[in-house]
Amino acid sequence: MHYMLLFNEKAEELGKRTDSVKAEAYWGGWTAYMQAMAQSGVMVSGNALQPPDVSTTIRVENGLRHVVDGPFADTKEILGGYVILDVTDLDAALEWAARAPCVSAGSVEIRPVLASPAG
């Protein structure tokens, strides 16, 4: 089964990306984690995302485009990245999720990918 792991990070955790002291440890942790998934063959795809201050949201109402700066809603945790894994079951997905650097400084949501209908 394919699962999406959504990595939610607290603002403080995300701030480490550009912190001269903490950035190295931050990226080191994520790189090792992503490599481990890639090497074990479970990773279908995945990316880190830029922070929400460069995010743009659009909504169309009555044919009018409403484009706003920033994410749709302000939340305490920010989506910092995601991966798609191909594993046998939820427990296997949970095991990978539990290794994510943000799991103790945020959370990881695990969503099964909706299987496409057979052609």
Partner: peptide, 10 residues
């Protein structure tokens, strides 16, 4: 069924 919880002994 949809989250794929395995029928397995932990």
């Amino acid at each position: 069924r949809d989250a794929g919880i395995a029928f397995a002994i932990p």
